[in-house]
């Protein structure tokens, strides 16, 4: 077999695998969330479809596919149709740079367990997460409905506010790892995960990604009891499904980013790297669900105050402190 064919096949196989695993994981994350939330509220959650409700995601997909795909009369048709895809694609693309295991050796080749190890992986992640705003905003605007528009405006300002502190929380990580590549960042955490080295950055990043994922306590863009369903009020059928799946893929992505940047990625004793990575990501996802089951929604002005007056100055301070610390240690 010629060299390039093998490499191309490997890349395709990796892509397909990641895609498949990610979608299945997202579908089952929905089920897990419903189950866990149910248990927290002393009810069993979905348990009718299949044993323990394990076929529920399948039933949901069938339901979403057979629903009417409704487009409001006064909507901007093309943008309306484009937006959910945009939301799902930006979420999916981010996974291209996530290293989910140490390099494998297959057919005498060293295969890095990452779809594409960019040397600016951190920036790729930040870029795509800033583009994720578009799917939501355009969808909300194109629906031509006041609830959708309000949800989109809220989401827009929330996401750009928290993206700042998220990006600034990553600066100390890059300073500590001395690289933008996610692989190198994981390598730099071989001894101690960055969450222990720089707990402040960890905390800021954690809060920012909860805000970034538009979930409780930061779910103002889709606050059910104020805005019906926020930016996707007018969506139905599989278009709504794309927004929905995109949200959960986003959850997994943000979880893996937290793992890579602060929890040491696939580093861990005894077990193979990919198992450690999955365990950590699932734990982070559980934490997200736990937060949803526990905290109430913030008020909008509280959200903005917290983002701009507490998180942002703290993360700036943290950048300066980390720089000073690194300089001092170098002598």
């Amino acid at each position: 077999m010629p060299e390039w064919l093998l490499i191309t096949l490997l890349i395709l196989a990796k892509l397909g695998l990641v895609f498949f695993v990610l979608l299945t994981l997202a579908a089952y994350l929905v089920l897990a969330e419903r189950k866990i939330l149910g248990r927290m509220q002393l009810r069993p959650g979905p348990n009718r479809v299949g044993p323990f409700g394990l076929m529920q995601p399948l039933a949901d997909v069938i339901k979403l596919l057979t629903k009417e795909d409704f487009i409001p009369d006064q909507a901007d048709k093309w943008l309306f149709m484009l937006a959910p895809g945009l939301a799902a694609v930006t979420a999916l693309l981010t996974f291209a740079v996530v290293p989910f295991g140490p390099p494998l050796t297959l057919f005498g080749h060293e295969v890095p367990l990452v779809v594409c190890d960019l040397n600016i992986g951190v920036l790729f992640f930040l870029g795509l997460s800033s583009l994720a705003v578009y799917g939501m905003t355009l969808g909300g605007w194109a629906s031509n409905s006041k609830y959708a528009l309000l949800g989109a405006i809220r989401g827009l300002s929330q996401l750009i506010s928290y993206e700042l502190s998220m990006g600034l929380a990553l600066v100390p990580v890059v300073m500590l790892a001395r690289s933008f590549s996610l692989n190198d960042i994981v390598m730099a955490q071989a001894d101690v995960p960055f969450a222990l080295v720089n707990p402040l950055a960890f905390l800021i990043f954690l809060i920012s990604i909860v805000a970034e994922s538009k979930r409780i306590p930061f779910d103002l863009p889709e606050a059910e009891n104020e805005l019906v369903a926020g930016f996707h009020t007018e969506y139905s059928g599989m278009r709504f499904g794309l927004f929905f799946v995109g949200e959960y893929i986003n959850l997994i992505i943000l979880g893996s980013m937290l793992t890579v940047f602060f929890l040491g990625g696939w580093m861990g004793p005894f077990l193979p790297g990919i198992v450690w990575f999955s365990i950590k990501v699932l734990l982070v996802c559980f934490f997200f669900i736990w937060v949803r089951g526990t905290l109430p929604r913030l008020r909008y002005d509280q959200l903005m105050h917290f983002g701009w007056k507490i998180l942002l100055p703290l993360s700036l301070l943290n950048v300066i402190l980390t720089g000073a610390f690194l300089l001092w240690r170098q002598g």
């Binding site: 930040l126 800033s130 705003v133 355009l138 827009l156 993206e163």
Partner: peptide, 8 residues
Amino acid sequence: GAIMVLFL
């Protein structure tokens, strides 16, 4: 990601 979003 930022400036165009603000325009929007």
